[in-house]
Amino acid sequence: MKYICSVCGYVYDEDSEKIPFTELPDDWTCPMCKAPKSLFESEEETEAPEIREIEESDDMEQLSPGVLAALFSNLARGAQKQYKTRESELFSEIAGYFTAASPSLPEADPEMIKELTENDLTILYRNLNDIASSAADRGALRVKVWGEKVTKIVNAIGSRYIREGGDFLSSTEIWVCSICGFVYIGDTPPAICPVCKVPDWKFDRIEGGT
C-alpha cells in the first residue's frame, strides 16, 4: 500500500520501506514537508467527506477591515512587481491603516486558531472546491489547493502546540514561504517550497519580536 502526504505529495510506499505505515510512531513526520502522519492518506482512500452546508449571508459585499488590509497589501505587492515603487508605498500605507483598524477579538488563544483553521478545512475550502469546479475556474482551484495545504500545516502545528507546548520550537527556526504562506519548522528552509515550489531564498525566518 502507498500513503501520500496531502500537503506535498510525498509517497510512502510500503513495498520499498521496512516498516508498515500504520506501525510508524505517532510523532513520525513527512520527510519532505514535516506534515504529521495524520495528514497522510492511503492510496485507496477515496471516500468523500460529508459536505456541510454553509449559511448564506447577505453581508458578503462589505469586506471587513482585516480583509481590506490583505487586499491593499496585495496591491502593494502588485505595484512593487510592476516597479511602481511610490504606488506600492501608498498601498502599504492604506493596508497599515486597515490592519490597525481591524477590531480586537474578545478572546484569542491557540485553540481559536485551531478552530478557525478546522472550519476552513471542513467547510470553506470544500465549498470553494465545489463552486470553482462547477464554474471550471482553474485560477480559483489553484488558490484553493495552495491555501488548503497551507491551512493544513498551520492547523497541524497549532494542534501540536496545544497538545505538547512549545518545546519543539525552542532550538530551531520557524520559516514562512513569502509566496504561499507555507510554514516550516527546521534549522534551514526546504530547498524548494513543498506547496508552491519556489526556491529556499523565498522563505522568511520568523523573529520573536512583535
Binding site: 496585495n74 497551507v150 497549532g158 520550537l169
Partner: peptide
C-alpha cells in the same frame, strides 16, 4: 514566534485569495 508565523501565513493566504 509561532503566532508571528501564523499571522504572516494567514495574510499571505488572504492576499492570494483576493488576488484570485
Amino acid at each position: 514566534r509561532l503566532m508571528n508565523a501564523v499571522a504572516r501565513s494567514s495574510r499571505l493566504v488572504a492576499e492570494d485569495l483576493l488576488r484570485e
